[in-house]
């Protein structure tokens, strides 16, 4: 697997590992992508989903499988994943833009409404994005979840933002 050499998954590897929801499901609204393809003993995502949309079962090294019809894209699993490998995508946000929600455990957190540099899995800036939501409540146990709007065609690539310059307090 190329992941072992370069340290990130290509879209092809994700599609081949059945991690990608269908285009049909994307067009219905918010849905989760679990970018976790290796057999590691781990199942908090399965336990987190109250819609039972994520299946691991036994043994817990099974790679998580998403039932795209049961998933409503609520995103509770994002902060539960110890690997920070879960994202929520909304391709129906507007005609030109889509939303991506991702875990972001750094300070400072971006401000809602600000423009940020969106990066791909390799950390390269591929687009600018607008911060739509920043969640950091107690139930997330200090894994803030950031949602940004980016051009729709960038949704397959964008998985985070460039780290912001440190400021005092936040």
């Amino acid at each position: 697997m190329v992941l072992r050499e370069i340290g990130y998954l290509t879209k092809k590897e994700l599609v081949d590992s059945n991690c990608y929801p269908s285009e049909e499901r994307f067009n219905k609204g918010l849905v989760v992508i679990i970018e976790c393809t290796e057999e590691i003993p781990c199942n908090p995502c399965e336990a987190a989903c109250k819609f039972k949309a994520i299946k691991i079962g036994k043994p817990i090294t099974n790679v998580p499988i998403l039932d795209e019809d049961l998933c409503i894209g609520c995103g509770v699993c994002i902060a539960k994943c110890p690997g920070l490998a879960i994202f929520v995508i909304d391709k129906t946000y507007s005609d030109n833009e889509g939303l991506i929600s991702f875990p972001y455990e750094y300070l400072p957190l971006p401000l809602i409404g600000s423009i940020v540099k969106a990066v791909n899995r390799e950390g390269k800036v591929v687009s600018s994005g607008k911060v739509i939501k920043v969640l950091n409540n107690k139930s997330l146990d200090r894994t803030p979840v950031v949602t940004i709007a980016v051009p729709k065609e960038k949704l397959d690539e964008v998985r985070g933002i460039e780290k912001l310059e440190s400021k005092d307090s936040k």
Partner: peptide, 9 residues
């Protein structure tokens, strides 16, 4: 350099 604020700590 001190870490005065930290997302987890």
């Amino acid at each position: 350099m001190r870490v005065d604020n930290h997302v987890i700590l």
